Computed example of a mutant assay.
Amino acid sequence: MSAPTTPGAAVADLLGLVALGELLAFERMAGDARLAPDLRRRAALGEMAAAEIANYRRLADRITALGVAPQEAMAPYVAALQAYHDSTEPRDWAEAVTKAYVGDAITDDFIRQIAAALDEADRQLVLDVLHESRYAEFAAAEIRIAIDADPRVAHRLSMWARRLVGEALSQASRVATADRGALTTLIAQGERVNVEALFRQLTAAHTERMTAAGLNN
C-alpha cells in the first residue's frame, strides 16, 4: 500500500506510530503486571496500562478526525514495534520495570524529537500522551530496590538494559528511515529533526538514565 502524501496524512502517519506504541504498551504492561511481587506493585503497573489505553483513544480520535482510519495509520509500524516487544520479553519483575524505564523512555525521546515538526496542537497532543515522569520514577525506584536486595542483580539488569536500548534504537532507525513518504517528509522538513543528531541525543539521555537507576552503562 503506498503512503499517502497529503499534509493531514503526514500527521496521521506520525500519530499512527505513537498510537500503536500506546496500544502495545497497554498490552505489555497489563501482562507484565502479573510478574509483580505484591498487589501494590501490580496495581501500579495496572494504572500505567490504563493510562496507555486512554492515550491510545485520544490519538485514535485525532487520526480519525484527519480522515484516516486508525488501523491504517498504525499498520506500517506493526512489524517494527512488534519485533521489539517480541525480542525483549521480560522474565521477571525486575526485567519488566527495567523495560518500562529504559525502553519506554528512549521511545519517548525519539517521538518527542520527531514531534517537533508538527504544528502546535498536534505536537502538544503527542507530548501529552508521552509517559509521565512519575511512572519512570516508580520504575527507577523498583530497580534500585532490586539492586539493594541483591547487588548481583545490577550486572544482569545492566546487560538487559543494553539489550533493550540496542533493540529500541534498531527499530527506531527502521522507522526513521522507512520509505513512508509522508512521514519521511515530516521527519526531514527544515532542520528541526536531524536523524544523526537525534540518535546521539537518545544515547546520551539513556546513559544518564542508567546512572540514575544505579545501572552500569
Rank of each mutant, 00 (worst) to 15 (best):
D38M: 01
G181Y: 11
F110Y: 12
V78L: 13
G214P: 08
G16M: 01
G67D: 02
A117H: 05
P37F: 00
A178Q: 00
A212G: 01
L186Y: 04
R144W: 05
V165F: 13
A83L: 05
L127R: 15
M210Q: 08
I106T: 12
A60G: 06
A172V: 00
R192F: 08
L17E: 07
L202F: 03
D61Q: 14
V129K: 02
P4N: 09
S170Y: 12
E208A: 15
G214D: 02
T88S: 12
S158T: 11
A205K: 13
T88Q: 10
T107F: 15
R42T: 01
W93R: 01
T211N: 02
L17C: 10
G21P: 01
R192I: 13
L125W: 04
Y84S: 05
A9W: 08
A49C: 07
R156K: 14
L127P: 06
A139D: 04
T6N: 09
G16L: 08
A172R: 04
A146T: 02
R163D: 09
A139P: 00
A141C: 00
I111Q: 15
A75S: 13
H155T: 14
V126A: 04
V68G: 05
T207Q: 11
E132V: 11
A10T: 01
D38G: 00
M159W: 12
N194D: 15
